[in-house]
Design a protein around this nucleic acid. Structure first.
Lengths: 147, 147
DNA sequence: GGTGGACCTTCCCATGATGGGAGGGTCAAG
DNA sequence: CTTGACCCTCCCATCATGGGAAGGTCCACC
């Protein structure tokens, strides 16, 4: 299978397949005399593995680990589970964060007339923005020239 | 106020403040004789506006629009609301997507023993992919038709 | 045999928002 | 004057992805 067929079989663009080759994630089984990449079923399966993992939101770094575990028939499932659980926690944290954003914005949008008048609680909120809570990294200021 | 003080007052790194200058988003009011950027209260307020908008997940492009609306006292609030509503829809779509990922992964993780044995439903799922091939108990010899 | 077009190759560039760091100038306190 | 915190510009890197140029290869059709 050449790269185009590998792309069709895996759903990954040729650009990305070449990239995975370049970074050493999935290497073609061989090259033809004319330097075309040749993939066999094993690599196709790996590409599909990556496709699926990406669709579940794993980063390329996590996928590198998962792929290496996948190739290792002796891996303890605990290691895989740990990676998945960390990713779940990461997803959940980002969901919470985005829900907070959406909630705030829904409230502001709800309060905004959305007509031709300029008064806008959304802009008002952005203007009022919270003071940056300054944890202050530097204590002693030899040069406190600010007011 | 020089750039460091503007950074402290806005919560935005000096790197990013220089970047905003470079792309024309927030220009310093002036420069000193020694070419230091000088910000006054108006720019500080704009930087804080940006900080707050970023914390609500707006992209820089959206912020560019919002900032321009903020500067225009005649803007119709409708335009602001439209931007916010589109952003809310975007956030919600991403939340739904990530919830689906997290849900799938929670299920897989739940089914994974997470011990020293190699059997792992998580890797099995990634292997199975989402192709028209059977889901699970059908180890058919999907062979041939490639060469 | 020739030709056209679909394919393949490598190399370079761009994204968005951010940070790191080098190399050098400026400012105020000691 | 020295010191060191601060500022300047310029370049590079990220992460995953795509665009495109310049050139080589394959194959089916005439």
């Amino acid at each position: 299978m050449n790269i185009g067929q590998a792309s069709n079989a895996s759903g990954i663009s040729t650009k990305m397949i070449r990239y995975y080759d370049e970074i050493g994630l999935v290497r073609p089984a061989s090259r033809t005399d004319s330097n075309y990449r040749e993939y066999d079923q094993r690599e196709i399966n790996e590409l599909r593995f990556i496709k699926r993992a990406r669709s579940l939101g794993f980063s390329m770094e996590e996928i590198t680990q998962l792929l290496s575990l996948w190739r290792d028939r002796e891996r303890p499932s605990r290691v895989v589970k740990d990676i998945a659980d960390r990713h779940i926690a990461d997803l959940e944290a980002r969901i919470v964060e985005m829900q907070a954003m959406a909630g705030t914005l829904r409230h502001l949008s709800h309060c905004c007339a959305g007509d031709d008048r300029p008064d806008c609680p959304i802009l008002a909120d952005l203007t009022a923005g919270k003071e940056p809570t300054q944890p202050a990294k530097a204590p002693a200021r030899t040069r406190a020239r600010y007011s």
